[in-house]
């Protein structure tokens, strides 16, 4: 792992600690949820292989992508099926975590009721 990645990881954790999007949300809970993405997408989204990384994802885009996957009429991709395993709030927390790491948590998604 190179120094740039290390700095990103540390900065990510730091930002996550001081800019909570939702009042009094336990960000370590989001971190735990999001860590389940790492087996395929790399530690904190730093992919080393052909599967796309998650280091450049914004809160809004990732949330909307995951919600789209959850609402496929006929889920066929592995990610459609992964996304279907999580609740809306869990998807939001995961998206918030990666959006915070990339520094793109500023713009919140439009939440579906």
């Amino acid at each position: 792992m190179n120094k740039k990645i290390v700095r990103t990881l540390c900065l990510g954790t730091l930002v996550a600690g001081v800019v909570p999007q939702v009042q009094a949300e336990d960000l370590t809970v989001n971190r735990l949820l999001a860590s389940q993405c790492a087996q395929c997408h790399g530690t904190n989204g730093h992919s080393v292989g052909s599967i796309e990384g998650l280091t450049d994802e914004s809160y809004k885009d990732l949330y909307e992508d995951l919600m789209d996957m959850r609402s496929e009429d006929r889920p066929e991709n592995i990610m459609d099926h992964q996304a279907l395993g999580y609740t809306d709030d869990q998807v939001r927390r995961i998206a918030h975590y990666f959006g915070t790491l990339s520094g793109k948590a500023g713009e919140a998604p439009e939440f579906k009721d």
């Binding site: 395929c40 790399g42 052909s50 599967i51």
Partner: peptide, 17 residues
């Protein structure tokens, strides 16, 4: 089959590196 190696390399790295 190709994606299998992408999956494995991240799984290996997330666990051991």
């Amino acid at each position: 089959y190709r994606q299998m190696f992408g999956w494995a390399s991240n799984l290996f790295t997330d666990s051991f590196h």
